[in-house]
Nucleic acid binder design. Structure first.
Length: 631
RNA sequence: GCCGACGUAGCUCAGCUGGUAGAGCACUUCACUCGUAAUGAAGGGGUCCCCGGUUCGAGUCCGGGCGUCGGCUCCA
């Protein structure tokens, strides 16, 4: 048989040869350093026979940044972890231990709960295994044999995995530990030069909260110590951009234990908030949205009718009112539908686009709160478009255009991605309804030609949706904008319009939020910009610094002149050295600082950009420059 | 909600095995009047998250609650 190597040359091998055989045929050094084969582009265990005619690439310890090489390294590290835990904690049951982005984990059921301080001993045991040396052996067995084996060991989770596995069953053995595993794995443990256990967490078996909660140990591993150090350094830098740290530090917002999940916005934070609100209002007006306002508090009967009560009743903040039970609204849709229903509507009026950025409340689980990105009180830049079936396509295209406009404006495309979420188990309506609405959204997103992932079963109970996600500084994805196609709620709330046939028809409703929640969007922006906002968003755009006391008067009037030109300017005339005041302006990440002393006049200002770049400019020039920056 | 960790001045943190708290920054006052990332000195400031328990005595030990952080689940 033959395989093709990356340089295009062919390598002749005996039938049934493995990737490792191929490596040996090329050179002993390569065979020694090989960690993984890529066969026809797919990662594959070195020990498995190669198909004839395959293209073969061998990854070695030198491919230390290759995601597949790191995966195999970390997957093997996870097995070493399981081996160590079984030795140190007899009676533990093992579940699953995959590599993940940036590391790996393994889930265990411990006979006695363990604590974070136990990790050091486990890490030391893994280090001992690596020092002692471990090699992996792959065996393929049939299902019954595998089942019997794990049953004898009392490994109920492995048994369950055997029962649900498709295809052949393979085992990997290293030291005294044999795991049910598809692989691939390293030949031996020597490439694992740096390993660190990073955390302990509860995790439900198979991700279902009705199952037992297992103990998950997280770790990471690299081909070099240098890479581990660099990773930890990057983590530290990402932590410095955390909006929960930067927000209070830059005095944008604060949190209080007296209202968990709700932000206290400062004047500086409100400058950013209002910049987003201005943008939202301006663009909405351009794009045919009509601003409305609906009550914050409603009799819960409304949500019983819309269908929300059954699913989200527990997450509602409730208010007793005489005989009735009210709730703080968790979304705007029923309100907008009632507003739609206040008149007889003609098909000639459609589409009607109601927009409202009201404050919403949802009683989210305590453990899920996360600064601005997961809050109990937030404001969606919400809108509901009432339209006919024929109008859906154009409306959704317009929404994609709007999203694209916003994402360019903030430069956030590279941290964003889209998902199409389809019918959930507890959906309203028939499969036929859903075939239609999912089909409409799928063609809409495909028409855009943007990459997207399908999230099966993740749709809203009333319709499928296209969600836009953005990553925070730590790389965690957050759902931001959403476009949802609803053919259920309008029917439940009795929305109708009169068609050209003079008969009643139900409008479709497209729910859409583009920032998502303003809170969450600001949170992501803080992390995206690391607190150094572009001038048009910066809470303070220009700071004026009088050099000494005699310059204070003129500095003040300079700041006032900037203010008159709608620039957010302030001045710092404190009795501190100039150096110190400049330092503080830098730490506050103010885009422009003007030093004003004997040498300056309106004709010639000393301007310092954030970061230190200096220039001489007239006030008129500066104002023109700020205007081009959108200030 | 669940697993693990943490909660000391406005902020960042120190406080060994129990003996009623400390630093830097910030704040106030005074001196300096300053040219592009920290001038100096003095001073004020604390229900050590809350409630209960053990103890002669609790920031420190134990229990419960609240909040926060890392995950899991959830996210209309």
């Amino acid at each position: 048989m033959n395989v093709t190597l990356p340089d295009g040359s062919a390598l002749e091998l005996p039938d049934g040869a493995t990737a490792l055989d191929a490596a040996r045929a090329i050179g002993p050094r390569l065979a020694e350093q090989a960690v993984l084969a890529r066969v026809n582009g797919e990662p594959r265990d070195l020990r498995r026979p190669l198909p004839d005619g395959a293209s073969l690439q061998l990854l070695t310890t030198r491919d230390r940044d290759d995601p597949d090489a790191l995966y195999v390294l970390r997957h093997s590290a996870a097995h070493l972890l399981a081996e160590a835990v079984r030795r140190l904690h007899p009676g533990v049951k093992v579940a699953i231990g995959p590599p993940i982005e940036n590391g790996f984990y393994y889930d265990f059921e411990f006979p006695q709960p363990i604590r974070e301080e136990d990790l050091a001993a486990i890490e030391a045991e893994v280090a001992r295994e690596i020092a002692e040396g471990r090699t992996w052996e792959r065996t393929e067995i049939d299902r019954d044999e595998a089942r019997a084996r794990f049953e004898a060991e009392g490994e109920q989770y492995k048994m369950e995995l055997v029962d649900t596995a498709d295809g052949s069953i393979s085992l990997y053995t290293q030291g005294d530990f044999t795991d049910l595993c598809r692989g691939p794995h390293l030949q031996d443990a020597t490439p694992i030069k740096a390993l660190k256990l990073t955390g302990l967490a509860g995790a439900y078996w198979r991700g279902d909260e009705n199952n037992t909660q297992l103990t998950r140990i997280y770790g990471t591993a690299f081909f070099t110590q240098e890479d581990l150090d660099a990773y930890l350094e990057r983590l530290e830098q990402a932590r410095a951009s955390d909006h929960r740290r930067l927000g209070p530090q830059l005095d944008l917002f604060h949190m209080s234990e007296f209202s968990p999940g709700a932000a206290l916005w400062t004047p500086r934070g409100m400058a950013i908030w209002n910049a987003l609100e201005d943008l939202r209002r301006r663009e909405n007006a351009k794009r045919g949205y009509l601003e409305v306002k609906t009550p914050l508090m409603w009799d819960v009967e409304l949500w019983k009718r819309s269908g929300h009560w059954e699913k989200y009743g527990d997450n509602l903040f409730r208010i007793e009112h005489g005989e009735s039970l009210y709730g703080l609204k968790p979304m705007n849709c029923p309100g907008h539908m009632l507003l739609f229903n206040t008149k007889l509507r003609s098909y000639r009026e459609l589409p009607i686009r109601f927009a409202e950025a009201a404050v919403l409340h949802r009683d989210e689980p305590t453990g899920s709160l996360h600064g601005l990105t997961r809050a109990r009180q937030f404001s969606q830049d919400d809108a509901h478009v009432f339209c006919t079936e024929e109008q859906i396509e154009d409306e959704i295209d317009a929404m994609f255009d709007y999203v694209g406009f916003l994402y360019d404006r903030f430069g956030v495309r590279e941290i964003a991605h889209a998902e199409l979420a389809t019918r959930p188990d507890d959906k309203l309506g028939t499969d036929e309804d859903w075939e239609r609405t999912e089909g409409i959204l799928r063609t809409a997103v495909e028409r855009q030609g943007i990459p997207y992932r399908v999230a099966e079963g993740e749709g809203a109970f009333y319709g499928p949706k296209i969600d836009f996600f953005m990553n925070d500084a730590m790389g965690r994805p957050w759902q931001m904008g959403t476009i949802q196609l609803d053919g259920q709620q309008p029917a439940r709330l009795g929305c109708v319009y009169t068609g050209p046939d003079n008969r009643e028809h139900m409008p479709y409703v497209i729910h859409r939020a583009l920032f998502g929640s303003l809170e969450r969007f600001v949170g992501i922006l803080i992390e995206h910009y690391g607190g150094a906002f572009p001038t048009w968003l910066a809470p303070i755009q220009v700071r004026v610094l009088p050099v000494a006391e005699p310059h204070r008067e003129e500095a003040r009037s300079l700041a006032a002149a900037l203010g008159d030109a709608s620039v957010r300017a302030d001045f710092d005339e404190r009795d501190e050295t100039l150096g110190k005041r400049i330092r503080e302006a830098e730490l506050e990440k103010i885009p422009f600082t003007i030093v004003y002393g004997d040498r300056e006049s309106e004709e010639s200002l000393a301007i310092r950009g954030h970061g230190g770049e200096q220039s001489q400019e007239s006030l008129v020039n500066l104002l023109a420059r700020l205007a081009t920056l959108g200030a």
